[in-house]
Computed example of a mutant assay.
Amino acid sequence: MDKTVLIVEDEDSIRKFVKINLDRAGFIVKEASTGEEGIDIARQGEIDIVVLDIMMPGIDGYEVCKILRKEFPDIGIIMLTAKSQDIDKIMGLEYGTDDYLTKPFNPMELVLRVKSLARRLDVADDDDHSILVIKPFKIDKYSRKFFKEDQEIELTPTEYQIAKLFMENPGRAFKRDEILNIVWGYDFVGDSKIVDVNIRRLRSKIELDSSNPTYIETVWGIGYRWKS
């Protein structure tokens, strides 16, 4: 792995423990103990993935996520939370997180999540220069850019992969577990709600009325499909 991971975590013991495991997995690792420091490091460049704690003094993880997602739409973000309630997990996803993990967590699970996200970010292994068009949308696979009516729409890495999957298979209904396996990877161990939240975010960016979607249809009892 040649990806650089930034750990933003105020608890020294957790931060060091995470760093050791990511080092062993072959990642380049940088550390920050506050949200402000994490933003400064990200602005210096060369950060691919951020492992971000929610509860920190000063700027909390939600605010850091909002800032990073606005300034660096292509960066991968995994949020760590000490809270187990669904609302906290969903809030993190709504702010633009690609994934979440609840403390206490198995360090190998975190490594697997980071590896899964790294695969979604990896352009080097994708030598496809083709353009995929389903009007009014267009995907440039090489640059990983998404357009509607020739206007670029900023998507997170996960949103891009979902849009690409749908546009490559118009009319096909995908179960949530299928989307998890294809986009997140077979080693992903989270729950399928992460699919619903990412679909909701994607709809908010591409639909005229996300509550009455035209392009991404819900197939009740199954999952979702791109209307052909």
Rank of each mutant, 00 (worst) to 15 (best):
F146W: 01
L52D: 02
V195P: 06
V64L: 06
Y95I: 02
S130T: 14
I59K: 07
D191Y: 12
R15Y: 13
D196A: 12
D10K: 10
R15H: 09
G58H: 05
E178K: 10
K83F: 08
E94A: 11
T102A: 09
D126V: 11
E207G: 13
L112A: 14
V219D: 04
T102S: 03
E36T: 02
T81P: 01
G96F: 02
D12S: 14
P213D: 12
D122A: 15
W220D: 13
D140S: 12
R43P: 08
R24A: 15
V18S: 07
I7S: 03
I134T: 10
I78M: 07
D88Q: 04
S211G: 08
I206R: 13
R43T: 05
V5F: 00
I49G: 00
L132E: 06
E71R: 04
P170E: 05
E217A: 09
L93S: 07
L22Q: 06
K145Q: 03
T218I: 14
I199H: 07
D60Y: 04
G171S: 09
E149D: 15
K135V: 10
V195H: 12
M91R: 14
N169W: 05
V64E: 01
I199G: 04
F174H: 07
T102E: 00
I78Y: 01
I179K: 06
A82R: 00
D150T: 02
D53K: 00
V197C: 15
K141D: 08
K30I: 05
R172C: 03
L101C: 12
T158K: 04
F27G: 05
F17Y: 15
I222W: 09
T156S: 06
V219C: 11
A173R: 07
G76M: 03
V189W: 00
E159F: 08
S211V: 06
S228P: 09
L180H: 08
D209Q: 11
P213Q: 10
I222H: 12
R176G: 09
K66T: 08
I7H: 03
P157I: 01
T214Q: 13
V111R: 01
I49E: 01
E94V: 13
E46K: 14
I134P: 05
I179R: 07
F72A: 10
D2P: 08
V18I: 15
G171A: 08
L132T: 13
S13R: 14
F137R: 08
T4D: 03
D23I: 14
K16R: 15
A173S: 14
C65R: 05
I14F: 11
T214H: 08
F17N: 15
I90P: 06
I67K: 14
Y62S: 07
K89C: 05
D40Y: 11
P57D: 04
V197E: 12
E154G: 12
D88M: 05
Y224M: 04
G96S: 06
R113T: 12
N169E: 04
L6M: 02
K83W: 09
I199L: 08
R172P: 00
K135Q: 07
Y215I: 10
D86W: 10
F17C: 11
L202D: 02
A32Q: 01
V5H: 00
Y224S: 00
M56D: 03
M56N: 02
D98Q: 12
I131K: 10
E37Y: 11
G61E: 00
E37R: 15
I90E: 12
D48M: 07
E63L: 09
V195W: 09
N21H: 06
S84T: 12
D150L: 07
D2Y: 11
E152L: 07
D88K: 06
F174I: 10
